[in-house]
């Protein structure tokens, strides 16, 4: 007997095998809701985090001390001094 014949014979012998009764209809709508929820949570979490980060950057920029006033000569000297 080859493998094909063996599988055919086993499958024929297994033909009457049936699963137990299942009933998922009662909870299907809840299951669908559960499947949808995680993606919304992730989206809201990402949006909240992005908004918070943007607000922090804006606040930091608002309270940052203004740069000290400089003239052009001082700036040039600051750059070339190490070379000289």
């Amino acid at each position: 007997m080859n493998t094909d014949e063996l599988l055919t014979k086993l499958a024929q012998a297994a033909r009457g095998d049936a699963p137990p009764l299942v009933d998922v209809a009662g909870g299907i709508l809840e299951a669908i809701g559960e499947t949808r929820r995680p993606s919304n949570v992730l989206l809201w979490a990402f949006t909240a985090a992005s908004t918070a980060a943007a607000a922090m950057v804006a606040l930091a920029a608002l309270f940052q001390a203004p740069p000290a006033p400089t003239d052009a000569f001082s700036e040039i000297m600051r750059i070339v001094a190490p070379v000289i």
């Binding site: 095998d17 299942v22 209809a25």
Partner: peptide, 18 residues
């Protein structure tokens, strides 16, 4: 309506998933 659809096909799908 979807719940009724599930009731109609769930045992056939159970045979598949078995």
């Amino acid at each position: 309506a979807y719940k009724r659809l599930v009731e109609q096909y769930q045992q056939e799908i159970a045979r598949r998933m078995w």
